[in-house]
Design a protein around this nucleic acid. Sequence first.
DNA 1: TACCTGTATGCATATATTCGAATATATGGA
DNA 2: TCCATATATTCGAATATATGCATACAGGTA
Lengths: 116, 116
Amino acid sequence: MRDFVKLFKALSDETRIRILKVLLERECCVCEVMQALTISQSRASRNLGILEDAGLIKSKRDGLWIVYSIDEQRMKSYTAPLIELLRSSLVNDEMLLQDRERLSHAVRICSKAMPK
Amino acid sequence: MRDFVKLFKALSDETRIRILKVLLERECCVCEVMQALTISQSRASRNLGILEDAGLIKSKRDGLWIVYSIDEQRMKSYTAPLIELLRSSLVNDEMLLQDRERLSHAVRICSKAMPK
DNA sequence: TACCTGTATGCATATATTCGAATATATGGA
DNA sequence: TCCATATATTCGAATATATGCATACAGGTA
């Protein structure tokens, strides 16, 4: 039986919803997510891990970076309606506008870009 | 903006998933839910309330009883894919088989039927 | 090897959630 | 009005979750 509880738990957090919406725009490495949402590195990493563990996103290594993206393979199965649900809510999402704006200026090198 | 977090929080609990699946079978009053799942009265009432607050189910009074049911009106909007997701998982659900069996014997009068 | 950098994780803490037991509320009948 | 009963709510304890800080880990480079 599919683990609905784990799936919905992963979705029941505002930070993770924001991350998913940003990932619907394009794939991101951890440092881009933290810049887009202006959250800490550990917070970004941990929440990305929870989303991945729930099967909503996947990761691949690209040099020093770990790049996360919506798991299109799974989307075709049971997570598809969930992703569609998120997609349908992208309009008039003020928070997403800000996250997207910051993402457009995000760079892959964090330490210098984000002294904090 | 739709309150996804509240919606998914409501779904991220095994008791509430079981309740939803039972309600997909047929509408139930609180005491039928508690008998079907063999849970306490306060637990049944509280979790039904959470599901209702999230907009997944609705309630109507029938004499002494409050009867809960899937909110078909909302199903047509954004909760539809969620309900479909649940429906698709009804097969091979061992727990549901048991809940359903107990529901078939449930009666509307609790105090005598469930001395506990 | 040694070092730098991006990411993951262990730990402590603040907050949130869940539950049972007890109590409050609401409806219907005598 | 008074009582019985179905449901809702409050309270406290146990447990789970989210986060920051510090540190460990891993890949790239010299």
